[in-house]
Amino acid sequence: MPTDLYPVTRLADVREATERSGLGALLLTPGPDLRYVTGYDAMPLERLTCLAVPASGDPFLMVPRLELPAAEHSPASRLGIEFVPWDETDDPYAQVAARLGSLASVGLADRMWAMQSLRFRDAMPGAEQRLAGTVLRELRMRKSPAEAAALAEAGAAIDSVHNLVPGFLKAGRTEREVGKDIAEAIVAAGHERVDFVIVGSGPNGASPHHELSDRVIQAGEPVVVDIGGTMPTGYCSDSTRVYSVGEAPAEFVAYYAVLKRAQEAACDHVRPGVTCESVDAAAREVIEEAGFGDRFIHRTGHGIGLETHEEPYIVSGNTELIEPGFAFSIEPGIYLPGRHGARIEDIVICSETAGELLNNTTRELVIV
């Protein structure tokens, strides 16, 4: 794994950001925040693993003794911080509190278990608990060149799976059978794990987060295929394409053309200085003008990186200005309940001048 993907300088950047925020310390348990700062993909357990990053003072990693070898062999070992192992009869929460001393506030990892946050509340009753994401979001949203390369690798991998989908889709097969083939292809394409496989055939295509079912795919039906996984780097893929098993209904073909124009308009709109909500509006206006505004029922996109869904969110009301390095999906949809639906999704990263697509399979309706 490239060392510049999880640079040792990132910890200092996080400590400085913590100090600027006014928080006394960040407490990061296993999950995307901990991995972002250290490169350590720690196993989430009821036993506490926690990186403490004080605004002043030295950071340290509290780790169960049985997990110490894994921590020592992880990228976190390059950071030069103290690893503090604890034994089964110890209280690691009290140990963290004692090392940090009296603090007015702490930032907890956004994905910290409630059980752990409550234990920290008891161990540090004088410390206001806030979200570490208020500090880390500014860093995590701005992808480095190494992160952009990792997302491009993920995008190419999921593209290669979409290229195989026409061979999996046949009338008479179930969504679950097709989904199994796709999941195997996601891993074969280089992903470490499969995060989701949506195969929405016919009326199931009108449910954006449809679960695989035993519904048999029929001739003449459109099929929405939304797939993604996590690469060994930790960075995620996510792409949606629409297929039709034979010729699709005329009304579907007509509104699919609207959807394609809307998705292209949003992609073309991306550049530094525009707002997140204006990208949403670029897609939504095309769909509304065609009379399908009430059939586009979700935001246009979400950020992506170490999580499939992270900031920034491409949605009305988000006035944040897009900056170089922001990476997010653009995925408008049109859904006709009981009949069919469609969504086209690409990952886009903002360069110094425009949006660059990280998915490059055809956006045309693919007839199989």
Results as ranks from 00 to 15, higher is better:
30 P>S: 01
116 Q>E: 10
223 V>S: 01
190 G>Y: 12
45 L>R: 15
255 Y>I: 06
212 L>F: 14
15 R>S: 13
139 L>M: 14
329 S>G: 14
248 A>W: 04
300 T>G: 13
276 C>Y: 11
21 S>F: 04
139 L>D: 08
121 R>K: 14
75 P>R: 03
175 E>I: 00
119 R>W: 07
322 I>W: 04
255 Y>G: 01
133 G>K: 00
143 K>F: 08
130 R>T: 11
320 E>S: 12
345 E>V: 03
36 Y>N: 09
128 E>T: 10
59 P>C: 02
344 I>P: 09
66 L>M: 07
154 A>Y: 03
328 F>Y: 10
217 I>S: 13
207 S>I: 15
79 L>V: 06
219 A>Y: 13
205 G>C: 00
184 E>T: 08
322 I>R: 03
162 H>C: 07
192 E>I: 02
291 G>I: 09
355 G>H: 10
92 P>D: 03
9 T>D: 13
121 R>Q: 11
164 L>M: 15
152 A>P: 05
123 A>K: 05
14 V>W: 08
64 P>E: 01
263 Q>D: 02
283 A>R: 05
84 V>F: 00
241 R>V: 06
351 S>D: 12
55 A>H: 07
360 N>D: 10
25 A>F: 08
88 E>H: 12
119 R>A: 15
16 E>A: 13
28 L>V: 02
40 Y>C: 05
171 A>S: 15
104 A>P: 08
275 T>W: 08
278 S>Q: 02
249 P>F: 00
134 T>M: 11
139 L>I: 10
123 A>L: 10
68 L>M: 13
268 D>Q: 14
281 A>D: 10
73 H>L: 11
238 D>K: 03
6 Y>F: 13
12 A>K: 09
349 I>F: 03
318 N>E: 12
89 T>V: 14
159 D>Y: 14
342 A>C: 15
273 G>M: 00
57 G>H: 08
55 A>G: 12
311 E>S: 05
94 A>P: 07
148 A>I: 15
3 T>L: 12
